[in-house]
């Protein structure tokens, strides 16, 4: 871990100013410190934002929920409104990491966590995300946990969050504050696909701080988060599906679906959802949706299995959701 200057921010604007001058935000630190110890990340300055007043979960005027960026993963998963009306989010959070980590990890930090790609983590490996232009050792390496959708020839990293997958399915929006003022954007627009600049993961500008996540009113239908992983707990997703599905008179009337473990960002493809609307739940219906989801999927050897596994996981999630929604 490289030496760094440490400062604690008293206000959001103070934090933004320091970050604009080059400091890295420190919130829960569960991923940042992990990476700093390996010098995968080596900021010269940290600005500690943990004491900023961003710890509240509040109802919005639109009957949605505003989640402060520093609300811990535990507090969010346990929140009465989230449990009652956004169970997919609660479940996704509870499926991620451990209580110890969720007690420290924050909402904003979770959205911005870095990939678990082993070559990104190994400073002695080529990685375009860590060291642009060095190549991608994962492409022909051990890429079991890496992406089959949305990747590029330069990077096949996956985004490891569970929480963000559920939020994507719920149509969450992200609120930021920066030196040039604040903005609100769709969670899907926060992320950038790797293309030829995998080192740039979001649209956030220097000094721009996520201050809140806004959930729209709870959607109709059944909600679930299905996560497939290599051990029963304390493991990242191979494939996960966050789903909200409504069924009326034997027909699917609405479907919101997002996917984890498959792509460099929490993945959503509205064509998959459209294909389900008006259909009677059946394996054929589910597989048709999977066909759309996976039309452009590309494996790299070790991770080829994720393509059929995604189909099966979607099948399982939709079967369960439709049974419960009916």
């Amino acid at each position: 871990m490289r030496p760094f200057d440490y400062a604690r921010a008293d206000t959001t604007s103070d934090a933004a100013t320091r970050a604009a001058a080059g400091a890295t935000f420190l919130a829960g630190g569960t991923n940042l410190l992990d990476l700093m110890k390996l010098e995968v990340m080596a900021p010269e300055a940290l600005v500690d934002v943990t004491r900023l007043d961003l710890h509240e979960v509040e109802a919005t005027d639109e009957s949605g929920l505003r989640i402060g960026a520093l609300v811990t993963n535990s507090d969010l998963a346990n929140h009465a409104t989230v449990r009652a009306h956004y169970p997919v989010l609660s479940r996704a959070l509870l499926s991620g990491a451990t209580v110890q980590l969720r007690n420290k990890a924050t909402t904003g930090g979770n959205l911005l966590q870095r990939t678990r790609c082993p070559y990104f983590y190994d400073t002695a490996a080529a990685c375009n995300k860590r060291d642009p232009g060095t190549g991608c050792a994962a492409m022909e390496g051990r890429n079991r946990i890496l992406a089959v959708l949305g990747a590029s020839d330069h990077c096949i990293a996956t985004h490891p969050s569970d929480m963000a997958v559920a939020m994507r399915a719920l149509g969450a929006r992200v609120v930021t504050e920066g030196p040039d003022g604040g903005r609100e954007l769709d969670l899907g627009d926060l992320y950038r696909l790797p293309g030829d600049t995998p080192n740039i993961e979001t649209v956030l500008s220097d000094g721009e701080l996520i201050t809140a996540v806004i959930l729209p009113p709870p959607p109709a239908g059944a909600q679930s988060y299905v996560k497939v992983r290599d051990r029963a707990s304390y493991a990242f997703a191979l494939v996960s599906v966050a789903g909200v599905v409504a069924v009326e008179d034997g027909r699917i009337t609405s479907a919101n679906l997002a996917f984890g473990g498959l792509a460099p960002m929490p993945w959503r493809n509205e064509a998959v959802e459209t294909a389900l609307i008006g259909k009677a739940p059946s394996t054929e219906t589910f597989d048709a949706a999977a066909d759309i989801l996976l039309a452009d999927a590309k494996g790299h050897g070790d991770n080829d299995f994720k393509i059929p596994l995604a189909r099966r996981t979607l099948r399982r999630a939709l079967r369960e959701l439709c049974e419960r929604a009916a």
Partner: peptide
């Protein structure tokens, strides 16, 4: 790694010893 033999999952997050569950 198939090319240089290094241990890619040299950590307890990806070398999966059983957990309680």
């Amino acid at each position: 790694d198939p090319r240089d033999g290094r241990i890619v999952n040299h950590n307890l997050a990806e070398y999966h010893i059983p957990v309680s569950l």
